[in-house]
Amino acid sequence: MGFFDKIKKSLSRTKEQFVERFDEIVRGAEGPAERSRPVDLETLDALEEALISADVGVAAADRIVSAVRQRRTRGESLRDLVKGEILSILRAAEQPASNGKTPHVVLIVGVNGTGKTTTVGKLARFIKEAGKTPLICAADTFRAAAVEQLQVWATRAGVDFIRAKSGADPAAVVFDAIAAGKARGRDVVIVDTAGRLHTRVNLMAELEKIRRIASREIEGAPHEVLLVLDATVGQNGLNQAREFMGVAGVNGIVLTKLDGTAKGGIAVAIAHDLKLPIRYVGVGEGIDDLVPFSPEEYVNALFEEKW
């Protein structure tokens, strides 16, 4: 199943709520007579609410709504406008993944309970399927049974992993993993880190240390620092992204649990406010349920059918 189908399937709930609500709004505003008039306040309010209830956030919703407010002079369709605005917000945040020396080090970070460990398993599988040789590093030495959980995923993915004793220094484990990656000639080292709230200074400093160690061992490492965000997260996702960007140098987002009822609208808010691109989307509980993100396909899937 391709990205489009998976996204479409996982967004079906989102669509039920967002697109149907949106259809309702648009229906009243799409006739030829309406198009020649300014959009009425009620439609704008309804649109804003639909966006807010999708966790798009006040700033991004504002931008989209003001684009719509000005539309009648251009006679454009409301639907295309909203779609175009969301797309251009997402596109503006896109940036090529950095290419460094091997092994390519990918650091997975995030607050507690967003699905980091699961993402590491899925990502290892994804990289392996792409014909590369990943190695998993279990640097979550804090949470009870985190290593055991990762072990299950590593076995499912068919990828070996470097572990340490519970309570060990995570940076030391990362050091070991990179050394092992070099010795075994691996392409990618994926590092699972412990979940931490972005407000905890000490724990954030630990990430800084991991980065330092990695960059000492391999030039440009960590090449990718992915922040794992739960699609149900609200506007706090912005704070998370901001803090993790500052301390851990996050340069991409993995949006997980998109197969829930949540809309992941926070991704639009983050792209709008912080210009941070979404790299992958987690769309299910299976090991193959991680797909690279594409703004076009995301928006198309979100707004597709019925239209």
Binding site: D55, G113, T232, V233, Q240, T261, A262, G265
Partner: peptide
């Protein structure tokens, strides 16, 4: 419930 949950919280 996670304090960080967004608008979806009500539904679940």
């Amino acid at each position: 419930a996670d304090a960080m949950t967004g608008q979806d919280a009500i539904k679940s």
